[in-house]
Nucleic acid binder design. Structure first.
Lengths: 190, 190
DNA sequence: GATATTACTTACTAGTTAGTAAGTTGTCAA
DNA sequence: TTGACAACTTACTAACTAGTAAGTAATATC
């Protein structure tokens, strides 16, 4: 039929959304198919297994992130502005629509995840931590940030707090999420 | 038969573990039954619905927490020691066995949770945040802690970072979790 | 105009899910 | 000794899960 050439992309968009909203165990091929107005098997045509679909979502997300951080528009920014850009990723994640970050969603279900997806989760988290570490390190050297301890540990604290705060927003409202973002900034200027 | 009078407690223990390890959508009555060496219907005898089982887990956890914080052994502690006690709850949660905190587990699947369980999640998070807020406030007044901004916001940051760090430990190892705990303490002594 | 390919649908399977109805058995109280 | 009750088992159901095999229709290629 060739009714649309970008079905694959639309499936990925929807599945990424569902992963953020309901978790890996919380969505099915039927969810995707019905929302797209196609049959179950059509989704299997594009992504043979759920495992493969999950991996494709994370791989695309990682590619996107790596493209951004290697782009001059971000790379040449001052550390404080780099951090603002990073925080904006989480702020734009639509916590008001109950969306959380992919890393947090996957890590929560880590134990019941297929191995390939676990490896993708490890890689994503590693990349986020590394970039945040480099930015904090650069910022402390330039005097833009001030904090005790190792940049790697501070990076882990910031990332885990953003991850947790998006989840907390579901129970306590988005105000709590924004409070965590602001508190993180405050704690870097002490 | 009356083979054991504490089956109900054993089910709750196991289900709480499974909730921490696999999430609400990740475990089933069959998991519990097989691990306990009983049949599916035996679990339904004690907890008629999964909804009810989930609520009972959180209710017990909340009761336990409230018992502790109202006990003189904790209540009369100095703020810094109170915080150490709180952090120890998370350290003792066995991140090495892939366990995460209940609040984080439930919030991640919040969108696909029955309403009664959502309300339990809200109540639990509210109680944790309130206690942490009070302790931080008391500690700042006494000079034990030092931080910018509101105690409520700092409480949200600490709680969400602990929650996120337990999840992150699954992908990055327990060392990252302990790093976040230590960094949180460092950030209160600046 | 024949052939191949892409993007599906129809129709299925085997396994798992929460949940139920009707029985069974050991224990305890009167 | 009887009968009630607690704590189960057996045997089921309806709905959902990922995944498959075979067929169909539109389009692109030769």
């Amino acid at each position: 039929m060739a009714r649309s050439t970008n079905t694959q992309r639309v499936i990925l968009d929807l599945a990424e959304s569902l992963l953020q909203e309901r978790g890996y165990n919380g969505f099915s091929y039927a969810h995707i198919a019905s929302e797209l107005g196609v049959k179950n098997a059509a989704v299997h045509y594009h992504f043979s297994t759920k495992d493969a679909l999950g991996c494709a979502i994370i791989q695309r997300y990682r590619d996107r992130f790596n493209l951004w951080i290697n782009n001059a528009r971000i790379k040449d920014l001052a550390p404080a502005q780099k951090l603002d850009w990073f925080l904006a990723i989480y702020t734009n994640m639509r916590a008001d629509k109950g969306k959380i970050c992919l890393a947090g969603s996957l890590e929560t279900e880590f134990t019941s995840l297929p191995e390939a997806l676990r490896e993708q989760t490890r890689a994503l988290t590693r990349e986020l931590l590394t970039w945040l570490h480099d930015t904090l390190s650069e910022g402390r050297d330039s005097g833009a940030f001030r904090f005790n301890g190792e940049p790697a540990d501070k990076a882990a604290l910031i990332l885990s707090s953003l991850q947790g705060a998006l989840q907390m927003a579901r129970a306590m409202g988005t105000r709590k999420f924004h409070a965590v973002v602001e508190q993180n900034k405050q704690d870097l200027l002490a």
